[in-house]
Design a protein around this nucleic acid. Structure first.
Lengths: 142, 142
DNA sequence: TAATACGTAACAATTGCGGTTGCATTAATA
DNA sequence: TATTAATGCAACCGCAATTGTTACGTATTA
């Protein structure tokens, strides 16, 4: 994994969960399948829990499961839950700046980027996390 | 400066040049105005030269100037010259991977991201670098 | 010949991110 | 009740990318 690894991990995990909603998965299981670390899994899935997509349970038989019907979750929900903002950065923390050209430019670029970010979310909203699980999956055994 | 600093620097500089095309500017002048370093300026503008947007001249009276009419240069030209790829990363170097779900997912996400990247370039192509220089500019004296 | 400016390489400083360890907390179970 | 197994969280390490900086070579003009 390299770029967009948080998003990749989140989508990958939710897609598997969508294929077998009843099953509870531990961070260790998920990390093993995704080739990463349980703590990293908890970090990423924690954001999804905050967004109401997942529930986690502590203790002996604890783990992670979907918090709502898989059919109701889109790629956009996951993207937004992670605060990714692939396109438009965090409001461009530029100083007020004394250069008019710079200010005009920033305003225009920010406008375009915000539009594109909105387009991206709209496109992601077209796809549900249930659209990826094949009839046969070695991970869940179906 | 922080995020997108290369693009910001490039656009800022070209916009000023568009307002006063005849003037030759040194890396030191540009760096001073942009609050950065001459070497950084040469790095960034070097990419624009490779793309045919700028010319640079060494020696005593050397410096940087536009290589083509300012009216013919759009934000997209600058963006592409820098190989920014704000949206879709460098072709997602994921291993073949033995998980079908992961592969399906990657394909779909890449498809959407590539579309969005193209949309971004199309939007940037709508704006020319001549659209930002005001009638009065303290930097160039007009 | 001296001054000036680019071209480039090398290195430092900073930042962000994933990975790792450790420990507290919680819940099921023997 | 004690043990086991899981999340939650904080702290730190290491790696990679980016910017800033210094230094030096090269080219051009006065």
């Amino acid at each position: 994994m390299k770029r967009n690894s948080r998003l990749s991990l989140a989508l990958h995990t939710l897609s598997h969960m969508a294929g077998e909603p009843g099953r509870v998965r531990t961070s260790a299981d998920i990390a093993d399948h995704a080739g990463t670390n349980p703590v990293v899994v908890r970090r990423v899935l924690g954001k999804l829990r905050e967004a109401g997509l997942l529930r986690s349970e502590k203790g002996h038989a604890g783990g992670w499961r979907l918090a709502k019907p898989a059919q109701s979750i889109t790629l956009a929900d996951v993207y937004l839950a992670l605060d990714e903002s692939l396109v438009s950065g965090p409001a461009s923390e530029a100083e007020p700046g004394d250069c008019r050209v710079e200010a005009n430019l920033q305003a225009r670029v920010t406008e375009v980027l915000d539009d594109i970010e909105a387009s991206l979310v709209a496109r992601l909203r077209e796809t549900k996390i249930t659209d990826f699980h094949p009839s046969s999956c070695s991970y869940c055994g179906t």
